[in-house]
Design a protein around this nucleic acid. Structure first.
Lengths: 144, 144
DNA sequence: GGTGATATGTTATCTTATTACATCGCACCG
DNA sequence: CGGTGCGATGTAATAAGATAACATATCACC
């Protein structure tokens, strides 16, 4: 981490375009996943006007693993640690109460799914693993 | 159940409403996942006119495990074997070439994800596991 | 017959995502 | 310098997916 977000955007990758930087910066400051339109609304002041500008940036960012798309939410998050592109598939735990998302890796899970694929003759291009539920904080602060 | 609507439906559950039966029947005959609007189009002749009629049926069907929603596709499939609600989470392998979907269970995967959840204090309500890629048939019939 | 729960039908609207087309900036090459 | 190609941009229009709000109907049950 070690990045102050004080003045302007900073910089995990040094070759982002302006729009990509804006979008990634917005995601980086968000507590919860944002839809493309959420992001657009945050960036109107910076001059963005059309959904496509956001979608194009998101495409590049997700391609590079700097952001992730949550399929079950149609929304996006900043990658939790863009430093190490820890290879491999990432899983997400999405709290339906507070909206926050935790990103984690479970190598065994990936292995098992790859194993099934091999056996079935299926060639996987990408894997989506998303848990919906209630996070620790929300569980403890809610009634049964 | 017992009404046979002119021949086309096996019957898994005998207490479906007309709309639910129509929607499930449509999915059961489909080769590939269908969006709610695909389903609606197929059912105009039967008198359905509004998306909501389809969505409402799909809600009930997915609740009961007779159909599944594919989050990464915004589309729906008929459950592969509605007989045994094989408890537990189901995973899907989606062929991006032919569109077909295979449904499978990997208990170990579910265990691992439950294990992570327990450790993280996360209480999962449901899990989504979807592989995108190329199926055996399409791999062998394609170049490279 | 009255009541409540569930299913329906219909319209309008909202959210999410893409198509199509024009332009700009810049590296690269002759 | 001029040209060519490619990737990013800007903009408008529209497609695709999902829900809100409201009115009505059906049926079990008392």
């Amino acid at each position: 981490m070690a990045h102050d977000h004080s003045g302007h955007d900073h910089v995990w990758a040094d070759d982002l375009t302006r729009n990509q930087e804006l979008v990634l910066g917005t995601l980086a400051h968000a507590e919860a996943p944002m839809s493309a339109y959420d992001i657009l609304d945050k960036l109107r002041d910076e001059g963005l006007r059309a959904p496509l500008q956001v979608y194009r940036a998101l495409d590049k960012l997700t391609e590079r693993g700097l952001a992730h798309r949550l399929e079950s939410l149609n929304a996006f998050v900043c990658c939790a640690d863009a430093q190490c592109h820890k290879a491999g598939t990432i899983a997400f735990a999405i709290c339906e109460t507070c909206g926050r998302v935790e990103e984690f890796a479970e190598p065994t899970v990936e292995q098992k799914l790859s194993g099934w694929s091999r056996a079935a003759g299926f060639v996987p291009a990408r894997m989506t693993i998303e848990l919906r539920g209630t996070c620790r904080g929300c569980v403890s602060s809610l009634p049964a």
